[in-house]
């Protein structure tokens, strides 16, 4: 087990450098220079060249890459040419907003989708199964922005239960608990929309892996031992179906940071999705590379976690 984890960790190192090289190169071969908007338009072409030279714009790419990476390791991700602030400050703010949404969505969707999928499989073709199946197909087939607009129309506009957009009530200046409640109030609708969409596929996945486990030979063996139906389903079948479900959930952790551009846009939620989308439009190179780096690290770590959890739940991996 220890050996297995170490091996997984070591594999991450070349993967990390490979991905960062690709990201860095791709962004730097994009046409146009990002600094022209920062400079005084009255500057002469020669002065501009000189300034670019001074900040190392013409250095060979490998040199720039090493410089960028070593600064990144020291916690300096550069300066945003659009926000005129250090990149870490810009990201920090949005990251919190996105995490608030995505962590709540992840927890809610796992808590709802996994039990629902299991029951759906155990009571295959029951009314509950059909209900869950229909719900899942709605969640899978409706585009997120459409669902978001529909939810906004009904719950925010017609019924007036929730605010239309934003993070907090503008001008209210709540503090303490009031501020928290205000934030929660604003988060309900985006969380609802994202949870429905997340749940749909997770539920279907749980259902099918549970159905598969229920008809395996070992489930029949468990019944032949005289175990109660409850033990057969919730010990023997469930434990096996959870192997793939755990992996799926852990790998989807990687999406936590990237945010949901469309949903964030509809709800005016200032998160990472919107940030990255705008950074690309603004040619805010340091910001784009920093976001990509952050995502890379996070996705690699969640894959590592997936590998470790996989070994925890499946002895066939653990003892290899």
């Amino acid at each position: 087990m220890f050996q297995y984890v170490v091996k997984r960790l070591l594999i991450l190192i070349p993967v990390f450098f490979g991905i960062t090289i690709i990201i860095f190169t791709l962004i730097h071969i994009m046409p146009g220079d990002p600094y022209s908007t920062m400079m005084d338009p009255g500057l002469s072409a020669a002065d501009k060249e000189q300034m670019l030279e001074a900040i190392g714009y013409y250095d060979p790419l490998p040199v720039q890459y090493v410089r960028w990476l070593s600064r990144a390791f020291a916690g300096d991700l550069g300066y945003s040419t659009h926000y005129l602030q250090p990149v870490t400050t810009v990201i920090g703010e949005k990251l919190g907003n996105t995490l608030l949404l995505s962590v709540s969505v992840l927890i809610l969707s796992v808590l709802l989708a996994v039990p629902l999928g299991v029951i759906s499989a155990v009571r295959q073709y029951s009314a509950l199964d059909y209900f869950a199946t229909i719900l899942a197909f709605i969640g899978i087939s409706i585009p997120s922005f459409f669902l978001a607009l529909g939810v906004l129309k009904i719950f925010a506009f017609d019924l007036g239960w929730f605010p239309i957009s934003g993070l907090r009530t503008i001008g209210a200046n709540y503090t303490g608990l009031r501020a928290l409640l205000d934030l929660a109030h604003h988060a309900v609708l985006p969380i609802l929309v994202l949870t429905v969409i997340q749940m749909a596929s997770l539920m279907r996945y749980t259902r099918s892996s549970m159905l598969e486990a229920i008809q395996m030979d070992y489930t029949r063996t468990a019944r032949a031992k005289g175990l109660s139906e409850h033990t057969v389903i919730y010990k023997h079948a469930l434990r096996n179906s959870m192997i793939s479900v755990t992996t799926l959930i852990t790998i989807s952790l990687g999406n936590l940071l990237s945010g949901a551009v469309l949903t964030e846009t509809v709800f005016g939620w200032p998160g990472m999705g919107t940030l990255m989308y705008q950074a690309i439009g603004n040619r805010d190179y340091s910001l784009v590379t920093a976001c990509a780096l952050l995502l890379t690290v996070f996705i690699l770590l969640s894959n590592l976690l997936a590998d470790i959890l996989y070994a925890v739940v499946d002895p066939r991996i653990r003892y290899q």
């Binding site: 030979d217 070992y218 029949r220 063996t221 468990a222 032949a224 005289g226 175990l227 096996n240 066939r316």
Partner: peptide, 30 residues
């Protein structure tokens, strides 16, 4: 009655045992 008074052995030993539980766990259940 199952596993107690009437017991059964199946054809496929490769798939008839549950892969995620130890041998002791699986025999011990009965």
């Amino acid at each position: 009655v199952r596993g107690n008074e009437i017991a059964m052995i199946f054809q496929e030993p490769m798939t008839a045992l549950n892969p995620v539980f130890s041998i002791g766990n699986q025999i011990g259940e009965a």
